[in-house]
Write a protein that binds this DNA or RNA. Structure first.
Lengths: 324, 324
DNA sequence: TTGAAAGCGCTAACAG
DNA sequence: CTGTTAGCGCTTTCAA
């Protein structure tokens, strides 16, 4: 591995010159630049990023924490975040917390060790104390972590209202809402309240059932779906995340329930899976790409100490489908 | 930010002592250790990972390159890889290449710059020359990159045979196989040949249709599904990736085709989505977790220069379902 | 315009 | 058992 010293010697110039030529397009005379370029070429020189990092005190990488990536919402989110960060010149460090004991702490630790320039936190956290007094840049994605940590999220009140609007075009009497675990408050959780408020005003009965903590797979939601049909025999509407609603759809069809005649379904999130089944799911779509881009810009802004007063919230939209 | 110097001063010992105490559990007298610990505590000292990296010439991070993470197979793969690497003490750097111009080159470049200790390459590559003569550790996941680069992959010949076995329990006459783009040869591609060979021997007609390059979404596969039913009116069996087959299922059901009476479907990969639709898909399951763990061990082995003669291949299994 | 040299913060070999 | 010091490879200020 050739080092900058070797290049300098080969080019017959000093180390400082090589560094300057390599990092500043407008430095040095054409002759000098050429000499350096040639030496680089000849020695196949590749600068060490570790050394640059230490010298410049930054890593150009951002950490992303999510519960899992095997879930359509987080998959799309992570991919979009990675892409946005990439275009801003940042690399992406990934951490999935669902299956791990205390990966969150370890990851926060790596942040403090300056292995990353900042973090976008998209996982639930039970231990929000971890985030108190952290000096490094952090933003939350649709999560409450601490009062000082800013949050990028969709306008879930509007989201709940959109869902309500969809249902209100039909004759529903009893709607079940499926929510994530209530152990942790999240902005996303708020669409349920907004929804309920509207439905209540319209005299529609609503129910709230919840998934277990850290549940993101199909198994849990299928189980919950069975329970819902058992417990609420007259349910004629269901609102929940894509995965939850897809599970309910599956169970309902197996039971011979006619969709959408006997049961209306609205999925919240609007990921690709709402489009991939036998029925296209009617859905409230979170603008995932746009939220990701916003989050990426915000974290880079924080890293560079750039104040930014633009809003941190984006509106969801209603996606027409065949289930409501 | 306190540095090691400050800790040394505070503890009344030398810098070297602090470093040794912090990094070697068996160094120093209890008294000295205590003094150091206390100073660390008091100053809230956190070592700089950048400095350690430079000093130790390693980053403890591994890069993962995949085309996308918004696809159940890669999602499960990335999650499992990240988890295995985590337990081996490595961080995960993620790069999705599908939407980016030449992210692959950029990522390989980061490898050469020693920003990562090694790479697990799970994306197609048109430019395999990139991988010639790379000095850093690389392993491929189900991809041919260059003769020197070892590959972790499922035994796809067995996979093809398992699929064949499933179909042969029924009366199929005309089976369509859906393959990825043929622009690049992959180990996974080989299940099609193995399958065809068996079917041919049994006198069953098979067809091979292919998806466009870098196509991983539902839109393309739905389109292809339509085309298949248009073009092959007498098709009574379909074999392809989870996503492809799920799309065919959707189109078939809409056309009123009875599953599995009139059409048998076998999905290759066996991700969660085979279990989440209205019909459980019969599937050949790649042992994703195990492959990921294997890949993680292999790359760490290479990084540490540990020779390892254990096999690089794992067998898939047949997952019973309702579509064949 | 270029070169010399002082860091960046930590590790580990070496000497005491 | 502990302290000193020479790197790790690069950036950039400061002189010349």
């Amino acid at each position: 591995m050739a080092k900058i010293r070797d290049v300098a010697r080969e080019a017959g110039v000093s180390v400082g010159t090589v560094s300057m030529v390599l990092n500043h397009a407008d430095y040095g005379s054409p002759q000098i630049r050429k000499k350096v370029q040639d030496a680089v070429e000849k020695l196949q020189y590749v600068p060490s990023e570790m050394a640059r990092n230490l010298s410049l005190k930054r890593t150009m990488t951002v950490g992303i924490i999510v519960p899992t990536v095997s879930h359509p919402f987080f998959a799309e989110l992570v991919e979009a975040l990675e892409e946005s960060l990439y275009h801003l010149g940042y690399k992406t460090m990934l951490c999935c917390t669902r299956q791990k004991e205390n990966a969150e702490n370890v990851f926060i630790d790596m942040l403090q060790r300056q292995n990353m320039d900042g973090i976008i936190m998209g996982a639930h956290s039970l231990d929000t104390a971890l985030y108190q007094g952290l000096k490094q840049p952090i933003i939350a994605f649709d999560r409450y972590l601490s009062p000082e940590i800013p949050i990028v999220h969709a306008d879930h009140v509007l989201g709940g209202q959109l869902a309500a609007k969809a249902f209100l075009q039909h004759e529903c009497r009893h709607i079940v809402q499926i929510a994530g675990s209530q152990m942790v408050k999240t902005p996303a959780g708020e669409y349920h309240q907004a929804f309920q408020k509207v439905m209540q005003a319209s005299g529609v009965r609503t129910e709230l059932v919840t998934l277990p903590w850290n549940s993101f797979g199909f198994k849990d939601s299928l189980q919950l779906a069975e329970k819902i049909f058992d417990e609420y025999r007259d349910v004629d509407g269901i609102l929940g995340s894509d995965v939850s609603v897809a599970s309910c759809l599956q169970v309902a069809v197996r039971k011979g329930i006619k969709i959408p005649e006997q049961l209306k379904l609205v999925a919240y999130d609007g990921t690709d899976i709402t489009q991939s089944g036998i029925y296209k799911l009617t859905a409230v779509r979170q603008p995932i790409e746009e939220l990701a881009e916003l989050a990426a810009k915000k974290i880079v802004g924080l890293i560079n100490g750039k104040p930014d007063a633009s809003p941190w919230t984006l509106p969801p939209t209603l996606l027409a489908g065949e289930t409501c």
